[in-house]
C-alpha cells in the first residue's frame, strides 16, 4: 500500500522556485529518507506533506488523502517533528505529552499514551519538571517522544537527531527503526547522510528543488560505485 504519493510537486515562494516538480512514492512501513544540502527543498517537501505549506502545482497524497483538498484527514494520519521545534516552556514534560495525547485519543488511553511517551523520552523523573529547565537535548527527546508515542501511521521527521549527542542520537535511531517495524511509515530528512543510510529503506537525493536520484542505499552506492551515501550525493551532484 502507498503511504505517500508525490507527483510533479512544485512550490514557489514569491520569485523563488523551492521545488521544481519532484515526484516520489513511499510504501507503508517504509523509512524513506530525503538527503540534500541546505536550501535543497527537503524541509519544504516535509512541510507540504505535513499540510503546513500549500502546493503551487502537482499532487501530494497521504494514504490516499489529498493534502490540498483534505488536509484535516491527512493530519489524522501524521505526526510531524520540525527541525527547529520547541515545547511549551511553562508546562512540565508530562503536561506537554498529556496535552498532545488529547488530540489522538481519550479517556484512559491518554494515560497509556503518555506513559509510552515518558518511556520513549527517557527523561525519568525530570519529566515532571518544567520544559524551560530542560537542556536542548532533553527537549529534543521530549519532542521525539511526542511524535512517536501515538504510533502514527506516518511520522514526518525533520532532522530527528538535531541537537542530540552520539548516544542519544543512536537511541533515537533505534526508536525510529522500532516504530517502522510496528508498521509505522517514516519520512525523514537529514544532513547526516550516514544516519539516513543507517535508517532508510529507500532514499531520494534532492538538489536545487529537484530529485537527482532515488533508490535503496545499496542500489545508489552500486550505481555510483560509491562507499557511502555522501560519495553518492557528491557524484550525483557532479553529474547534474
Amino acid at each position: 500500500m502507498t503511504a505517500i504519493e508525490v507527483v510533479d510537486l512544485v512550490k514557489n515562494y514569491a520569485n523563488i522556485e523551492a521545488l521544481r516538480g519532484i515526484s516520489f512514492m513511499v510504501n507503508k512501513g517504509e523509512i524513506f529518507g530525503l538527503i540534500g544540502p541546505n536550501g535543497a527543498g527537503k524541509t519544504t517537501t516535509l512541510r507540504i506533506v505535513a499540510t503546513l505549506l500549500e502546493i503551487s502545482s502537482g499532487i501530494v497524497r497521504v494514504f490516499g488523502n489529498d493534502v490540498k483538498k483534505d488536509p484535516e484527514r491527512v493530519r489524522e494520519k501524521i505526526s510531524y517533528l520540525p527541525e527547529e521545534a520547541g515545547a511549551y516552556k511553562n508546562l512540565s514534560g508530562i503536561e506537554y505529552l498529556n496535552f498532545m495525547a488529547q488530540f489522538y485519543t481519550n479517556g484512559r488511553d491518554i494515560e497509556e499514551m503518555v506513559a509510552t511517551g515518558t518511556s520513549i523520552s527517557g527523561l525519568e523523573d525530570r519529566i515532571n519538571d518544567k520544559v524551560s529547565t530542560y537542556s536542548k537535548g532533553m527537549t529534543r527527546k521530549l519532542l521525539v517522544a511526542r511524535s512517536l508515542m501515538m504510533n502514527p501511521p506516518l511520522a514526518i521527521l525533520d532532522e530527528p537527531t538535531s541537537g542530540l549527542d552520539v548516544i542519544n542520537s543512536q537511541e533515537v535511531r533505534g526508536l525510529i527503526k522500532d516504530h517502522a517495524r510496528k508498521g509505522c511509515t517514516v519520512l525523514l530528512s537529514s544532513h547526516n547522510m550516514l544516519e539516513i543510510e543507517f535508517l532508510s529503506s529507500r532514499v531520494a537525493l534532492i538538489g536545487e528543488g529537484r530529485i537527482l536520484d532515488s533508490g535503496t542505499p545499496g542500489e545508489l552506492k552500486n550505481r555510483y560505485s560509491a562507499q557511502n551515501l555522501e560519495e553518492v550525493f557528491l557524484e550525483a551532484v557532479s553529474h547534474e
Binding site: R47, A50, T51, L52, E72, R75, E76, I78, S79, Y80, L81, P82, E84, A85, G86, A87, Y88, K89, M100, F103, Y104, L143, R146
Partner: peptide, 14 residues
C-alpha cells in the same frame, strides 16, 4: 518564537 506553532498546526484538530 518558541517554534511550537508548526507542531500545533499539524495536530488532528481544526
Amino acid at each position: 518564537e518558541n517554534k511550537t506553532l508548526e507542531t500545533l498546526l499539524t495536530l488532528p484538530v481544526s
